[in-house]
């Protein structure tokens, strides 16, 4: 019925297109600004294409821009974030997989209550654990280290990963596991032989979710790391808000895109799973 109303359809498409422009505009402005010269930025129009495309701001953002006292660009912090994100994602995902397996397939008296208790960790505002965590990391000698950040992200990420895997495993028919147990398969055999082979999709969802969360984290990074050990989000914020000398908007934008590239890349290649993770994370509780 709506199909024949061509005016109506045109309006729908126009509205959708307008929204698309709204969402794309900041990305467009970031990209074009990062390739402009400072004169071009000052004299020209924000929406105009660069008069001459220049890569200088990118080189500077990567290797020379000041992020406080240091002026070595984003490169070191990019690697910090990688060194923090990869182990934290791997450990929290594996923990989540076995935890989810237990709370869905091996329920025991009180296991549901324990799972609910774990879930609370998904909802607390992290401000409420920052002060004790800072004390503890200091005691352990992990303050201002990447290892400390890995610990923090594993501790507070595992509630989410457990939830992901639990919600996936409860859709697996009980009979599968019961039959395997009658055949004499034990706890680990069932996990490795029966569940792991069918867990591919949920691993992808969980890894993408954790990767995005941990890479994009700012709060833990700014509180528990300083100087050399900062993750890239903190470095970006410092770079943008360093107020010495002329403000170089092209360098700011290049640095912002560098910080966004890994998660954008993941979104581009595995967007389908990304959305699934968001919706799965959304129907928690």
């Amino acid at each position: 019925m709506f199909k024949n109303l061509t005016v109506g359809r045109a309006l729908v498409y126009a509205a959708l297109l307008l929204m698309a422009i709204y969402y794309l505009l900041p990305l467009y402005v970031m990209l074009t600004t990062s390739f402009k010269s400072l004169d071009d930025i000052r004299e020209g129009n924000m929406l105009a294409l660069p008069q001459a495309w220049q890569g200088g701001a990118w080189a500077k953002a990567w290797a020379e821009a000041c992020t406080g006292v240091e002026c070595n660009g984003m490169q070191g912090f990019f690697w910090n974030s990688i060194k923090m994100t990869l182990p934290a994602v791997a450990i929290s995902t594996l923990l989540g997989a076995v935890n989810g397996y237990v709370v869905s397939m091996w329920r025991f008296r009180g296991s549901d209550a324990l799972f609910t208790m774990l879930l609370v960790g998904c909802f607390i505002p992290f401000q409420v654990v920052l002060l004790p965590m800072a004390q503890l990391l200091g005691l352990l000698g992990l303050a201002n280290t990447t290892a400390g950040l890995v610990l923090v992200h594993v501790v507070y990420g595992t509630a989410f990963t457990t939830l992901f895997f639990r919600n996936f495993y409860i859709t697996v028919p009980d009979e599968l596991v019961k039959a395997a147990r009658i055949d004499g398969a034990g706890f680990w055999t069932i996990f490795f032989r029966i569940l792991l082979p069918i867990s591919g999709p949920i691993f992808v969802v969980c890894i993408i979710w954790q990767f995005t969360q941990i890479w994009n984290d700012f709060l833990f990074g700014v509180v528990f790391a300083s100087g050399e050990s900062q993750p890239i989000t903190v470095a970006l914020n410092n770079l943008v808000n360093t107020s010495t000398g002329v403000k170089e908007y092209n360098v700011d934008m290049a640095a912002a895109i560098i910080a966004a590239l890994p998660t954008l890349f993941v979104y581009m290649v595995a967007g389908r799973y990304f959305v699934r993770g968001l919706t799965a994370g959304a129907v928690k509780g």
């Binding site: 700012f218 912002a256 990304f274």
Partner: peptide, 8 residues
């Protein structure tokens, strides 16, 4: 935008 950090 959901893939981006709030800082970006």
């Amino acid at each position: 935008p959901m893939a981006l950090s709030f800082v970006v």
